[in-house]
Amino acid sequence: MLLRAEAVAHAIIDGDFMGQVHPAPEGDPHRAEIVESNLTAVWANFARRGYRRLSRYPHRTDQDTVDGAQVWANGLGPNENHSGTS
C-alpha cells in the first residue's frame, strides 16, 4: 500500500460492498443510486474526521452501472482526492 508506506492519511472503501442489497431497490435495477447514496454517507463520515484521500477497492467500477466512475464521483463530491489504487 503506497499511501500507507508514505504515511499519507487515507480511507479505504470496498466498492462492491456499497451496493450489496437484494432485491435491487425499486427503480434502481443496477443499484447505481444505492451505491451513490451509500458512498455519500460513508465518505461524509471519513471527511468529518479529516480524511481527504480515498482508496477504493477493488479498482474496477461496477460493470452493471451505466457509468460506474460517475457514480463514484457523484458519491464522493467534486473536491475529494480519490483513486482506484491503494
Rank of each mutant, 00 (worst) to 15 (best):
N45T: 15
N74V: 08
G19D: 12
D64L: 14
G75L: 06
G68R: 02
E36M: 09
E80L: 07
G75K: 01
P78E: 11
S86P: 14
P29G: 12
P78T: 12
L39N: 01
R31C: 11
E80Y: 03
I34V: 15
D67G: 04
E36N: 04
N74T: 09
F46M: 00
R49F: 08
E26W: 07
E80D: 05
V71K: 02
D67V: 08
E26T: 13
S83K: 05
N45L: 14
H82W: 08
Q70V: 11
H30I: 15
P58S: 03
E80H: 06
L54A: 02
E36A: 03
R60I: 15
N38T: 10
A44K: 03
V21A: 14
R56C: 09
T65L: 06
Q20G: 14
N74I: 08
W43H: 02
D28F: 05
P78W: 03
E26L: 12
Y51E: 04
Y57Q: 09
D14L: 04
G75T: 04
V35Y: 02
E80A: 10
H22M: 08
A41D: 11
Q20V: 14
P23M: 10
E36K: 13
H30Y: 10
H10F: 10
S55L: 10
E80V: 14
A11D: 05
D67I: 08
T85F: 11
R4Q: 15
T40V: 05
I12N: 08
W72E: 07
I34C: 03
D16R: 09
T40P: 00
V42E: 07
I34Q: 04
R49A: 13
E6V: 10
A9V: 13
H22T: 11
F46T: 01
